[in-house]
Write a protein that binds this DNA or RNA. Structure first.
Lengths: 355, 355
DNA sequence: ATTAGCACTCAATCGAAGAGAGTGCTAACA
DNA sequence: TGTTAGCACTCTCTTCGATTGAGTGCTAAT
């Protein structure tokens, strides 16, 4: 049995209808709504074939058919190039809002994930860049209090991270800028995770020159740098629109809804989910293709975002397998590209001056 | 008809039972479970009286009674001092986690609201301090890029706020520390919302002394300060545990759940809700006492948190009117006090040195 | 190869019957 | 006079059979 032209037409019609209504599709519906020029009986025969081929199932013997994961897979593979080409105008327009309000990475990501979920009406995620892989450009200490100090780290990619340090001994305020300068000089070029014992030693040496009697607090400071900077927020996941699923008929069952919510609210499992996805620009995992059984009724659409040509994070949308793939794929693609642009604009070195 | 001792006992028993089970309470249940030494018939008579007095209602003629808002109000007023006295041991223990991980205000608030919701099993909120009322202590500019600069503002209360500035003209890097010092000197002591045209003028004057040809970017910088600092995040609301309500029998109805969720997910209305609450240390609004009709089946318990004796923000829990008031009130109280301590420890000036 | 016709299937809906929890009232009792 | 046993009554909730209706599969005709 082969998937001839008419079968394809019927299959697509069934998928389209099911995506729309979430209701099993009968032969009459297809013959009426979609002009195929054949009677319901013929369609019934074809549907029976399609079921045998694994593209359709029946919830029960006397009901219409619903598409299987295999059907969605076929459907997505078919529309793939088309969906990728389709730039969503509305989406692009909305994304501009992010751009205008953008300044810190945090707010860019927060806004982006919100827009993605509002636009697709599904639960959306953004995995933030792993900071520990970022390269240090400059370090500035800002005195806050007698023994509290704000450590501002500017990365090579212009992302800024700040940590409040509480030290047991007071820091010599009058030398703070010199200390900052020394830290910058010694640490720029290193990744956060690179700061090891060796580097620490030479740093201590250098800092002693500035002020000998402040050794204690400086030592504490450097200690903090070497022990804590490497493990900065390994998996920071932004999510939005989790409660959107309550609007979907497939989650009218409260238990199902609860199960879904407790899965996606757990940032660890979501982070793992995105980690297991390979590094393709875009992926679509349908139903049982997902590694987590909790998502066997869901599809996951992911994309990456980059900086300087390197993938620094991922975005994704999770919805029911019965989702508007065309729309969601192009939305995720648009968002991914928009984020690339925005991050480029906001974090690219404008000039090569190293002071 | 007066609320004699036995009526009170019965009323409390009914409330306790209803809080437990969410099911209308019958006379037999009361007479069995709670030792009152009287027959169901007697209790029926008393219940009838209590209904007449407005403390109970019947969902339908042949069902048990459920407490009215008035009953909860009476109940809460009765246990008020007791609940306030009860420090929850578990709660205090959990709160320590916040304390240990505390450094930035943001993470303190985020952790606190999470703990509050996990502990009470209800939706919890924290309204962040209004930054525009905070007094500036120090300003530090951190160069990031040719024409991008991080503005770090340390407040008198040691809260730190940073904004990334994108300027059209490059900033003179070599004078950045002098500019920072000047900004600090001129602006410290003012509130963010105080920075007006007058102050702006004198600031510009002073900065020109540093570097005349950099006037454009300095002007831009000062302009930004005066126009944007005053309107910093007027109503930053943290929330957690919104989906907890899906576990409550009263929200088995998906439409009700959706209505609730869409209300509490709207930070604006939540912020307004907390604004309308007066400045008492603790408030309890039961059912229709709430200003929003969306919350007429809910109770809101709020408390404040302070810094230097001044209220700087609010916390609150929203649950069904049938909530364990005793537990929630003491949890909110404990959290409020814990936050006071934590904020005190983290943000109090350790020393009076002004450099 | 297509299609009209028809018997068949099965979930969903509807309604009547019955169960059960609870009340209000009355009359008896301490 | 307050309390209580007894009983009829009310009303929701559950159960279960009947009905409906959408949809199928098969057969025979075109």
């Amino acid at each position: 049995m082969s998937l001839d032209k008419r079968k394809v037409k019927i299959l697509k019609a069934i998928i389209a209808s099911y995506i729309d209504n979430a209701e099993a599709v009968g032969s009459r519906t297809i013959s009426k709504k979609y002009e195929l020029g054949v009677s319901p009986a013929t369609i019934r025969n074809e549907m029976s074939d399609l079921e045998e081929m694994g593209f359709l199932t029946q919830p029960h013997t006397s009901s219409g058919r619903i598409p299987t994961d295999k059907a969605y897979r076929y459907y997505v593979d078919e529309l793939w190039t088309k969906a990728l080409g389709a730039q969503d105008k509305n989406m692009r327009q909305i994304i501009r809002i992010v751009d205008e309000e953008a300044n810190e990475l945090d707010s860019i990501l927060r806004n982006s994930v919100r827009i993605l979920s509002q636009f697709t009406k599904y639960t959306s995620f953004i995995v933030a860049p792993q900071l520990k892989k970022a390269v240090i450009k400059r370090i500035q200490l800002v005195p806050v209090d007698e023994n509290k100090i704000l450590l501002v780290i500017v990365m090579q990619n212009n992302i800024v991270k700040q940590v409040m340090l509480k030290l047991n001994k007071p820091i010599p305020f009058d030398q703070i800028d010199r200390i900052s300068a020394t830290l910058s000089k010694k640490l720029s070029g290193y990744m956060l995770e690179d700061i090891n014992a060796q580097l620490k030693e030479s740093l201590i040496q250098e800092l002693y020159h500035i002020r000998e009697n402040a050794g204690d607090s400086l030592f504490e400071l450097v200690n903090f740098l070497s022990t804590n900077l490497g493990k900065f927020e390994d998996l920071n996941v932004y999510s939005d629109g989790i409660t959107n699923i309550l609007n979907l008929p497939e989650y009218n069952d409260l238990d199902k809804a609860r199960e879904f919510i407790s899965f996606v609210e757990d940032k660890d499992s979501v982070a793992k989910l995105f980690q297991t996805e390979n590094e393709n620009d875009m992926t679509v995992s349908i139903g049982h293709e997902n590694s987590y059984k909790e998502l066997s009724d869901c599809s996951l659409i992911t994309a990456t975002y980059k900086f300087n040509g390197k993938i620094i994070g991922k975005i994704g949308v999770i919805g029911p397998t019965r989702m508007d793939y065309q729309k969601v794929i192009s939305a995720v693609k648009s968002m991914s590209e928009a984020m690339n642009e925005i991050i480029d604009q906001n974090f690219t070195e404008q000039d090569n001056n190293k002071e």
